[in-house]
Write a protein that binds this DNA or RNA. Structure first.
Length: 189
DNA sequence: TAGGCCATCTGGTCCT
DNA sequence: AGGACCAGATGGCCTA
């Protein structure tokens, strides 16, 4: 796996070159009050020069009437872009929060999103299995969930279509899988 | 230079 | 109706 330890990038706010030349302020169509200030702003090629297909990839409908897109429509689209940007920022913040609670070896390298999700899944599994083991092996005579917790877990697994296989049901199996994964991430495989 | 990862734009669909 | 969510497309940056 490749290393990724670069600062967060942020693109320059895009002017809607096809539809809104000069529509916004000199600083952009809409101010981008994102959580992160614009770092290393980079200009992007004007979309209009790229042809009818916008940079977003989707082909825009042609001018749907005399005069093309109306200003109100353009404004809605720009506002929608901004909301989408904010939504993605929140999503990324959640990813970052998740990264910070997952123990992993490669502390100096930022986990990718897919690595974060995969590690988190297996980390949860290993913790779950550990808890089950601890609660079921408690000393006799002590009050506690114990076997009930294990039965509940079994029911959840079966209801979810999962099977408590030989390794999946064992904390050692989860831990083994988790540590193997951490190792593979570290090795870049 | 290729491939991976990411941010962003965009239109469609779903939900309130 | 408007916002949230989603997925496709595009291009930039970085590393091997």
């Amino acid at each position: 796996m490749k290393t990724k330890n670069r600062p967060p990038r942020r693109r320059a706010p895009v002017q809607d070159t096809e539809a809104t030349p000069g529509q916004g302020t000199p600083d952009g169509p809409l101010p981008s009050p994102g959580p992160e200030p614009a770092k290393s702003l980079r200009s992007r090629p004007a979309r209009a020069a790229a042809g009818p297909r916008g940079e977003g990839g989707r082909r825009r409908p042609g001018p749907s009437g005399p005069g093309g897109r109306r200003d109100s429509s353009i404004q809605r689209r720009l506002e929608s872009n901004e909301r989408e940007r904010q939504r993605m920022h929140k999503l990324n913040n959640a990813f970052q929060a998740l990264r910070e609670v997952i123990p992993h070896v490669r502390a100096d390298k930022k986990l990718s999103k897919i690595e974060t999700l995969t590690l988190a899944k297996n980390y949860i599994k290993s913790l779950t299995a550990t808890i089950l083991t601890m609660s079921s092996s408690r000393l006799p005579g002590l009050e506690g969930p114990g076997p009930k917790l294990y039965q509940h877990y079994q029911q959840q697994q079966q209801a979810a279509g999962g099977t408590l296989g030989t390794t999946e049901a064992q904390p050692q199996g989860h831990l083994q899988k988790y540590s193997t994964q951490i190792h593979s991430f570290r090795e870049g495989t």
